[in-house]
Design a protein around this nucleic acid. Structure first.
Lengths: 316, 316
DNA sequence: GGATGTCTGTTCATTATTGAACAGCATATG
DNA sequence: CATATGCTGTTCAATAATGAACAGACATCC
């Protein structure tokens, strides 16, 4: 039944794909977590066994030859099947052990995830959590993570979303900044103030802070990490839109409009449908859901005590 | 970008598939040309890495668990992509070296293929021919062979057929058998004679020899190998339908009806479309086509000299 | 120009994988 | 009942794959 005198290794396809995608042996090696030597050798072997040259050296890195292009589609098909297979197997794993890859924003990681999984690991010491922070929504669909906690609901049909609750955010700045520049008037926009925004949008994609126009505002700092944004606000850089649970916990910033209710966004827990039934996924998902529900008020309104204190301060 | 702390080996899927299909470690090992120990180890590793038990021991061999069934489809998809990939690569191989897997019937192998490839290998010593004999038509579509020479045109769309020419066959028996039982009359069927047929059909699928009904005939021997059929006829077992080039070359058998023209069947050369452009496939295919054309008369009518001699003999 | 970083190719010691040989077990076969 | 056959599991020596370290090439930055 064996088809070839010298049967080739399916695994080599992973090496070929990595080099074809990254364009260099070294970056492919990093991606695959092996030495670059190994990558080169495996590619050479694959080419020898298939009897075709797949990659050619160019001034800047490797590029696929025509033959390489011709098989790329089948290689991708193998990869896709392999990923499916892996996920389906993980979904049938009834043990509460192994690795769960989790992705969420920095702020929610601090407030919600880290305490939840610390407690969880008391009960399940064999469970390991890989936490990847960032704002990319693509991660789950590309299977770079098992669970995502997101403030936007993804539309992809194979992803299952569970509503966690609402997260409130408000505008924050340092006391000194507000004293120096004054407090913007609600409903008049943030023109002539300094704002701290996310990098992705040059103010075009996110032109509003709590409904206030950023028209005419100076962008002081752009950073995708909300904790760094908060740090920037605390250092008197300007006004940032922060989650209330975050801003209220930091003594160096206060709400710009203490009496204004927070702007609410819904938080979703996102899982690939194949992983829904996995025991360890369920355990982690429900630990996060529980943690969210325990902190429902804080996540929505921030820390009430701090808020009234800040309001009192601001009024003086 | 690496998805798992301990990345699994795609190659292990081949081991799993082999065991799932054969039901035992040893036969899977033979199929994969490795030791049975390796198969067991790889399966164990795969199960450990996926965190799922894929195979369970039963009184007679291994059988797939529910989890194993769940991933079988993805495994097959990987295999299919791998085979496609292999074939496409082979189709782009411009060297005239390596292995060409050829399948045909025993008779045509003797008469046509062996001389053709012997001559071919003078010109291309690096070319190796794997010759698989048998009547199965499925081989090419399942990619167990690169080239097939068949007397029936397969309907599968991805296979490319080239008409080689016509092969004539006739009924043969030993002189002693005909002397003892008499010569059947043309048009009256083979009732009350002994016939040598193929195994596949219990006379139901092939109820005719040169248009003669086998109704009432005794089946003396069934064998899929035409050379063995001829041997049986030579040993006075009964009447066989043989290719003329074969029967005419054997002194111990004669045509039952020497003056009857042979029954003609078209011979096809079958190649997978992906392999059409491969240099070595083209070389072998044209060598076979040439050999066929050189022997056109012989393949159609057998050996004329022998035939008239036999006819003379039969008439005495 | 010199320094720095990234990339590839080579060498060699380390490590992981492999299969031959053997033993145990079950099932046919005489 | 003895024998033969086929399968699995274990051990260990031989083999194959791997990566750290180094060297050379190329580009970029100061």
């Amino acid at each position: 039944m064996n088809r070839h005198p010298a049967t080739w290794q399916w695994d080599d396809v992973r090496f070929f794909l990595a080099v074809a995608r990254t364009g260099s042996l070294s970056s492919a090696a990093r991606m695959l977590r092996v030495g670059h030597v190994t990558v080169g050798r495996r590619i050479a072997l694959l080419e020898k066994r298939l009897g075709v040259v797949l990659l050619s050296r160019t001034p800047d890195g490797f590029s696929t030859t025509l033959a390489g292009q011709a098989i790329l589609q089948q290689c991708a098909a193998m990869e896709s099947a392999a990923l499916d297979l892996e996920r389906i197997a993980a979904g049938r794993d009834s043990r509460v052990s192994g690795t769960v890859r989790l992705t969420t924003t920095e702020a929610l990681a601090h407030q919600l995830v880290v305490p939840a999984i610390s407690a969880l690991r008391q009960a399940h010491p064999e469970l390991q959590i890989d936490l990847t922070l960032g704002v990319r929504v693509l991660d789950i669909a590309r299977r770079d993570a098992d669970i995502a906690i997101r403030l936007a609901r993804p539309a992809t049909p194979e992803l299952v979303c569970r509503k966690l609750g609402e997260v409130g955010s408000s505008l924050y700045a340092s006391r000194r900044y507000l004293a120096k520049h004054g407090t913007p008037r609600r409903g008049q926009g943030l023109g002539d103030f300094d704002v701290i925004t996310y990098t992705g949008a040059p103010a075009a994609a996110r032109p509003f802070f709590m409904g206030e126009s950023l028209e005419g505002a100076r962008v002081a700092t752009r950073c995708d990490n909300p904790l760094v944004q908060m740090r920037a606000a605390a250092d008197h850089s300007g006004i940032a839109e922060l989650a209330c649970f975050l801003g209220d916990a930091e003594p160096d910033v206060v709400r710009v409009w203490p009496d204004e209710p927070p702007a609410l966004r819904t938080a979703w827990l996102v899982v690939h449908q194949d992983l829904r039934r996995s025991a360890r996924i369920k355990v982690v998902a429900s630990a996060i859901t529980d943690a969210f529900h325990r902190q429902l008020a804080t996540l929505r309104n921030g820390h009430a005590v701090k808020r009234s204190a800040a309001a009192a301060l601001a009024r003086t």
